[in-house]
Design a protein around this nucleic acid. Structure first.
Lengths: 156, 156
DNA sequence: AGCACTTATGAGAATCATTCTCAATAAAAT
DNA sequence: ATTTTATTGAGAATGATTCTCATAAGTGCT
């Protein structure tokens, strides 16, 4: 298993207790997309008294050093995700809340071309597809459990 | 020119002064993507004393009756856009704040296929491309004035 | 037009997520 | 071990948005 203090050092961050604990949580397979509040609660549950302000600070530090990715969801809520996977996009089921990840080279290419032709340099993009998964549609329940790996990968 | 009270009635909304004034602003070609605060200031400039709370309420009403579309930009900022055009996506210049609109059938198709294959029914999507426009990159200033029509349309 | 009924508005308080402040503390460097 | 520098905690501050509630407008009916 990857060494957390090492990760922090590589990212140019001091290895402090809050950072270690928070990175541990993010590396935990059970959670993939968490809000600052979520992290704060998880810390409390495991008996770590780390202030909410620190959680925000650490997550922002992690974002700046590319350890995590911040997503701005609807309603001004941010969720964070460990940046341990190739760039990908998200399909969000509006019924069960499940988030599927996918990756499509062709779509990325397409975006890049569009932008270039318009005289625009892409730094970043955010794509969320909202809808329902078939488990919901057919039987009223979601039959796809959350997964850590990319759910759908489409090659070029 | 389209009749504003008519629009409101069709949307199932009482025709009140604040609603008329705000819809007027949204229909104004000069502005396309505005925040609630922007609308509030524009109202003040034209001598209309309409409270900020009302602006928010009206914009939310408009959203619910599909008169406008709400975008949740980075940093928890919402902007509103008159819903008078075909579905399209946005390129946001992170330097000058200019928002380009574009529309790409092929990308939409692609999304639909991906989703279908994964057993997912798309209801909606949100795509924002962030970057800088070439005016910024080359000369430090944006050379692309805001436009009302779609800036870039790519057919299939 | 006049009256009753329902809905919208204004102003300020309240809320929510997030950031800031600053004194106390812990890591890193010497 | 000591100095230096960055980090933390707690609570205050911020900024966007929503809520509350008394007042003011629209709408429908006579």
């Amino acid at each position: 298993m990857p060494n957390i203090p090492q990760n922090l050092k590589q990212a140019g961050l001091k290895t402090t207790l809050p950072r270690i604990k928070i990175l541990e949580i993010l590396k935990n397979n059970e959670v993939r997309h968490v809000s600052a509040e979520d992290v704060y609660k998880l810390l409390l549950e495991s008996g770590d008294e780390i202030g909410l302000a620190t959680v925000y600070r650490v997550l922002t530090d992690f974002e700046n050093s590319n350890l995590v990715i911040r997503h701005n969801f609807e309603g001004g809520r941010s969720v964070f995700e460990l940046n341990d996977q190739p760039e990908h996009d998200h399909m969000v089921c509006t019924e069960c809340g499940h988030v599927f990840e996918f990756r499509d080279e062709r779509m990325n290419e397409r975006q890049k071309n569009l932008a270039t032709n318009a005289g625009f340099s892409i730094a970043d993009h955010s794509l969320y597809v909202y809808g329902t998964c078939d488990g919901i549609k057919d039987r009223g329940e979601c039959d796809m459990p959350p997964r850590r790996d990319l759910d759908i990968i489409v090659k070029k």
